[in-house]
């Protein structure tokens, strides 16, 4: 008895997309890249810098390395270090995590550097707090709203080009932990907030008044996790110079000094 199942069209599409998105020598998922970005910030950024170019002769995001050629070379160097140099062995890092860093580097290499140069960080700060009204959602070193992501060390976490992209097209890449949720209780007005957690029966959010709130899903008329960004695009709101100033300010946000 031969039994054939109809092939799910959406699965076929995913496969084609996956094979079309070949990066360097390995294929990496968006999750790999995201995880790798976090690993990079935690383990690499203090020496290599957010642009990956703080070590002479090395430009990680341009694919310029002193010794590594292949992805496997990079993994090996991350884990074992380079004896006699300042590159320490990440002895506690497993291969899978090291490989996510490679995913992040390869992904970043595919994005050209920001063209918004010549910005002034002080002017950017004024824009952030004034015309841009960024502090109505974002917090920097203790002031501003907790509704959106805290940007106190965003300059350590994101490259200038990524910050530029976020300002111009904020909906392009919302991380899962920055998703908003809209809930409509059976009684009372709808509430929008940043999703903090959810399970089968409840969800937790921080609302626009910075209240930590839990909703019982059975008591809701409706709720949806919003994939788009709540942040407006600044493409037509700020001039090119103002955008450069803003990026310059954001790049300057390095968080508290760390040892």
């Amino acid at each position: 008895m031969m039994t054939a199942f109809p092939m799910n069209r959406s699965i076929v599409c995913v496969l084609l997309l996956a094979s079309g998105a070949l990066l360097a020598q390995h294929e990496y998922t968006a999750t790999d890249i995201e995880n790798g970005g976090r690993q990079y910030v935690n383990n690499c950024v203090y020496c290599h810098g957010p642009e990956g170019d703080q070590i002479a002769g090395v430009s990680l995001f341009q694919g310029r390395f002193k010794r590594a050629v292949s992805d496997d070379d990079i993994v090996q160097i991350i884990r074992n270090g380079v004896p006699g140099t300042g590159m320490p062995a990440q002895t506690g890092m497993n291969e899978a995590n090291a490989r996510t860093i490679v995913a992040y580097l390869r992904s970043a290499a595919a994005v050209p550097a920001s063209t918004l140069t010549g910005g002034n960080a002080a002017r950017g700060k004024s824009l952030f707090e004034g015309k841009g009204a960024c502090a109505t959602c974002h917090r920097v070193q203790g002031s501003g709203s907790r509704m959106g992501p805290d940007l106190s060390d965003i300059g350590m976490q994101r490259r200038a080009v990524e910050l530029e992209k976020s300002l111009l097209d904020p909906g392009a890449g919302v991380l899962p932990q920055h998703r908003f949720v809209q809930v409509t209780p059976k009684s009372g007005p709808a509430v929008t907030g940043r999703l903090l957690n959810q399970d089968t029966f409840t969800l937790q959010l921080i609302d626009s008044q910075e209240r930590l709130r839990t909703f019982v899903i059975a008591d809701l008329r409706d709720y949806s996790v919003l994939k788009d960004s709540r942040m407006p695009s600044y493409k037509d709101k700020l001039s090119r110079q103002e955008l450069a100033d803003m990026v310059s300010y954001l790049v300057s946000l390095k968080g508290p000094n760390k040892p």
């Binding site: 999750t31 995880n35 899978a96 490989r99 998703r179 994939k227």
Partner: peptide
């Protein structure tokens, strides 16, 4: 390699539909 949000212990759940 993972292709979606983490399923590990103790993380907050931000998943979508």
């Amino acid at each position: 390699r993972p292709t979606g949000p983490a399923t590990k212990t103790g993380v907050q759940n931000f998943r979508g539909d």
